[in-house]
Design a protein around this nucleic acid. Structure first.
Lengths: 149, 149
DNA sequence: CTCCATTAGTACGATATCGCACTATATAAT
DNA sequence: ATTATATAGTGCGATATCGTACTAATGGAG
């Protein structure tokens, strides 16, 4: 395969990723109350799966979001009482974000609605395209992450 | 495979897509002048490949972006003289957005820089993960798009 | 032709995003 | 211990995003 074609291919890959991201965020956000963001929802899910919580900086690294944006998002989640923000005992500069039980419940309910909304897509495609691409996506994400300055 | 696991899998798929999108947008945006957005860049690329141009509405559908956001983005691209916005001869309500030669040149230069920046990733992974997932991504995108209300 | 429902684009306002600069704490160097 | 450097989080200001409501133009029904 020609070098130029490879670049084209990678470019199309990123375009598809961008559009899928757009489609799914929009769909998700119509199912979420207020003006809750898909990213906020992702953060909540991340925290629910980690009962010990994480620091804002860890979260901003995990989601590749500027820490100044993370401050804002976490504040929003705290206002909705979906997470708590406590001082980090092992570092006075830092904090620990944890999901509340209300947060977990909210996540589960939303996931439920999202699954329902995606059912037609799953019926149509089956899970194979997701499973098959997931391996590659993970590899790509890891490499992009590692290679980042 | 259990139903619940399938949901988990789809959820992880979307999470990976979100993070890759974030990583690549951020990387691209550091290579772009001013505060030009990755999406703006995508739109420019779209227009460069379509010499007849497209209407704002076509663009907002193609990228799944609200048309009100599209107005804003196109205005920005026009200010930078990377595109033109002309009245649509076949519909007085409408407009046609076209890339300028300056726009095309700018795109090519930026693509060049982006390719260079991504070279380590390609060296590391090869193009296979991109090629292999691209087919699936396209199918998924098409289905999501079709199933959208 | 007239009426009316639909469509393309935008103005506006609310909120989100994020770069820069700053404070407080932590860590390393001497 | 003292000083210098790095790190965690935030305030602020500039800009981006997008929902609502609007105007102008279109196209279909009678």
């Amino acid at each position: 395969m020609k070098y130029k074609d490879e670049i084209e291919e990678v470019y199309r890959f990123f375009t598809e990723v961008g559009i899928i991201n757009q489609l799914i965020s929009t769909k998700l956000e119509t199912l979420l109350p207020d003006r809750m963001t898909a990213t906020q929802f992702g953060i909540l899910g991340h925290l629910v799966r980690r009962p010990d919580g994480e620091t804002p900086l860890q979260l901003s690294k995990a989601f590749q979001i500027p820490k100044t944006s993370m401050t804002h998002m976490l504040a929003g989640l705290e206002t909705k009482a979906l997470i708590t923000l406590e001082p980090n005992p092992s570092d006075k500069r830092s904090k620990i974000a944890r999901s509340t039980s209300r947060g977990e419940q909210f996540l589960n309910e939303s996931m439920q609605r999202m699954s329902k909304a995606l059912q037609p897509v799953l019926d149509d495609l089956g899970h194979e395209p997701f499973a098959n691409s997931l391996t590659h996506l993970t590899r790509i994400r890891e490499t992009l992450d590692k290679e980042r300055d």
